[in-house]
Design a protein around this nucleic acid. Structure first.
Lengths: 247, 247
DNA sequence: CAAATAGTGTCTGTTAGACACTATCAC
DNA sequence: GTGATAGTGTCTAACAGACACTATTTG
């Protein structure tokens, strides 16, 4: 066999010749979102190499032959952040011709939801950071979205701004009918915290009374009986998410 | 250069060696749906070669280097059916390890919606056919779905039954908030026809009064003033779909 | 005329939003 | 006590479902 097997992704990109193998290669990118202090944040990584040197990207990498797409997304997230057992869902597959200037790469995008507590440990490793998601207009998404770091807006590298915009749009839509808000909170949380998460994601206020009624009527919350403490107002009750398997 | 460039997809599969190029290849599959006589139908193709010889599949093929995913889906649909300008939307990307027994192939699935009139011409070309979609339970989808041909249920080849199930689930969900029913009807249609389409897709009756009110309130329909003729009951008025650009 | 479906008017139950009110904490 | 938020009760407007009714065609 003439061609040696590329040992790294970098090697692969150097030896790749579209004339020999005229098919696109396949990567996975993950928009890992969290809510912290009423702001929606995303995990980004600073590139150290050309192209887009010193620009920020979403964590990602190539799909291996011996893993499914879900497994690839989980593997990459674990490799870049150390986090395991994260809520992860396929988002959309991006295939623009020029989305990677080196070669034709199609990317299966995922989004992940993690509560902030789990991210405290790894935050600000210089290259890996949490950036605020800057949704341009009052709710108009679908297009490109910027991130905010050090009081400045930045465009993400490649088409990752578009991926991020799609992720925000998706979770906004899902919030209505799927219990995804819980993924962004600790195990025990108050209704006010849950409402804050919804308001942050939707970037608008929601009606308090109606929100409480809907959540309690959904039968997905379980009252713990325990109360907040240390707050200088009436303490709220803690709830937990009742998993669907318990129904 | 030692290796000659494969000229066809068949050649590619014969010469492909995962040790030399350890990345999955990428195909597009399309679930083209239509509604005919109150039954939901899908376009299937009978395979003539191993594997799954004589079994039915969804139309599909490999993604070329010089086309986007949307373009690939449109090209394949045009190649297999002759149809152009079809409503086409990305569905989900399937990446099970064993979904193709020959080699690792990841498939970006699309669904298409076409009104039956446009399919009359090509129907029953022996290898290319319209098959009834057999949704197993009363609305429970997400899993595998079978097709019905010649009074018999068949499993689709590869994981195409799963793709079809995902497509049905998706359009059921979209029906509530997106004007996709129009894609399955001729340019002029009555409210009854539109309701039939909805009922067929949802596999359940919908409230007539409420359906009319919702559709008329949606501001997406335009009355033409023209009436049905040749029916032996009071003729209904024809409506057209008001395109969003006109708003 | 009867039969069949198109289309309208109205009532009712459910639910979101609004508002007023009470409850419970820190200070 | 005050100030702040948690949580409850009730009214109202909007809307889906149900039903009754009228309208218009064919035969």
């Amino acid at each position: 066999m003439k061609n040696p097997k590329p040992q790294t992704e970098q090697e692969f990109l150097e030896t790749y010749d579209p004339n020999i193998f005229p098919h696109p290669s396949l990567s996975v990118d993950v928009a890992m979102l969290t809510v912290r202090q009423r702001s929606l944040e995303v995990l980004v990584i600073k590139r150290t190499e050309h192209p887009f040197k010193d620009r920020y990207t979403l964590p990602g990498g190539f799909v291996h032959l011996d893993e499914t797409l879900d497994q690839a997304a989980a593997r990459l997230l674990k490799a870049k952040t150390g986090l395991d057992n994260v809520f992860l869902e396929q988002l959309y597959t991006f295939g623009r011709l020029d989305r990677d200037p080196r070669t034709r790469v199609i990317s299966v995008a995922y989004y992940a939801l993690v509560n902030t507590e789990r991210l405290e440990a790894l935050e600000n490793t210089d290259t890996i950071r949490l950036a605020r998601v800057e949704v341009p207009w009052l709710g108009e998404v679908g297009g490109k979205v910027q991130i905010r770091l050090e009081k400045q807006n930045h465009d993400l590298a490649f088409d990752h701004g578009e991926i991020l915009g799609t992720a925000v749009k998706r979770i906004r839509g899902k919030l209505d009918y799927a219990p995804i808000g819980f993924q962004l909170l600790p195990e025990r949380f108050t209704l006010r915290q849950l409402q804050d998460v919804h308001e942050t994601i939707l970037a608008r206020g929601v009606n308090k009374d109606s929100f409480r009624r809907r959540m309690l009527a959904s039968e997905q919350l379980e009252a713990t009986g325990a109360l907040e403490s240390g707050v200088d107002y009436r303490p709220a009750e803690f709830y937990t998410f009742k998993s669907p398997s318990a129904l």
